[in-house]
């Protein structure tokens, strides 16, 4: 039921967001049409950060309570977070190419996202490499906590680094037009709904897997 509602909400919001981006919002003066990617680029960043925050909270809760459900929530959220971060990095590249003629720029936020992406890839790998799933859950929780606390230090260091070696800043001008703000806000909610939908789906899927494993085990021991 919840996932049905979220599915409907995501669809409506996605269509609205696309309509706003392509038909309503005015073209930004200096960057032109390509700036419109901004309206998805930023929400992806926000929501991947939200996803990693959920990983952090669920990891702390898992180590504290040791209930499988917290671990399932953490790993599901990390997966969605990695997907969103990947899309954020790709959309950043698509945006950077026509503006500065390069696919990649060591802009602080992009670079922080790249480091974050690597940390959460490691989060998923640790789980896969652990010798038992209970261990994997525990180790992943530790990485989920440590990785999240590392983010502010990473961001600070990269920002300080870029101010010493100035490079193109991706977006300086404010959102001059109220329609721009509206589009951005709608898009942020769009991706939050999409995040919630994917999260609920993944959690349900993982719980199913868990049940199946337990049943199999039970059948074997009979």
């Amino acid at each position: 039921m919840l996932s049905r509602i979220l599915l409907a909400l995501s669809l409506v919001l996605l269509v609205t967001s696309l309509a706003l981006i392509f038909f309503v919002v005015p073209t930004e003066r200096t960057m032109g049409v390509v700036q419109r990617i901004f309206y998805w680029h930023v929400p992806l960043a926000w929501n991947s950060f939200l996803a990693f925050f959920v990983v952090f909270i669920a990891s702390v809760a898992y180590l504290w309570k040791r209930t499988k459900n917290w671990d399932i929530l953490a790993s599901a959220s990390a997966e969605v977070g990695v997907v969103f971060t990947t899309l954020f990095l790709i959309s950043g590249s698509i945006w950077a190419k026509p503006i500065w003629g390069v696919w990649w720029t060591w802009e602080p936020r992009l670079t922080t996202a790249l480091v974050l992406w690597l940390i959460y890839i490691a989060y998923l790998l640790v789980r896969a490499y652990a010798s038992s799933s209970e261990r994997g859950a525990r180790f992943a929780a530790v990485v989920g906590i440590v990785g999240f606390l590392d983010v502010p230090i990473v961001f600070l260091s990269i920002t300080l680094w870029r101010t010493q070696h100035p490079s193109a800043v991706i977006f300086t001008g404010g959102l001059a037009d109220p329609r721009m703000i509206l589009t951005l806000v709608v898009s942020i909610f769009t991706f939050t709904a999409l995040y919630a939908l994917l999260l609920v789906q993944r959690v349900a899927f993982k719980k199913g897997e868990e049940d199946l494993r337990r049943l199999k085990r039970l059948a074997e021991s009979e």
């Binding site: 480091v115 690597l118 940390i119 890839i121 490691a122 790998l125 640790v126 490499y129 652990a130 010798s131 261990r135 180790f139 530790v142 990485v143 440590v146 990785g147 590392d150 230090i153 990473v154 600070l156 260091s157 990269i158 300080l160 680094w161």
Partner: peptide
């Protein structure tokens, strides 16, 4: 953590390198 995984020599750098980025910078 890495010694308790299946690929211990590999797991340490994969975890360590992104996390120590601020130290390196």
């Amino acid at each position: 953590l890495a010694t308790n995984t299946k690929a211990r020599e590999l797991v340490l750098p994969i975890l360590f390198l992104p996390v120590v980025v601020p130290v390196i910078i």
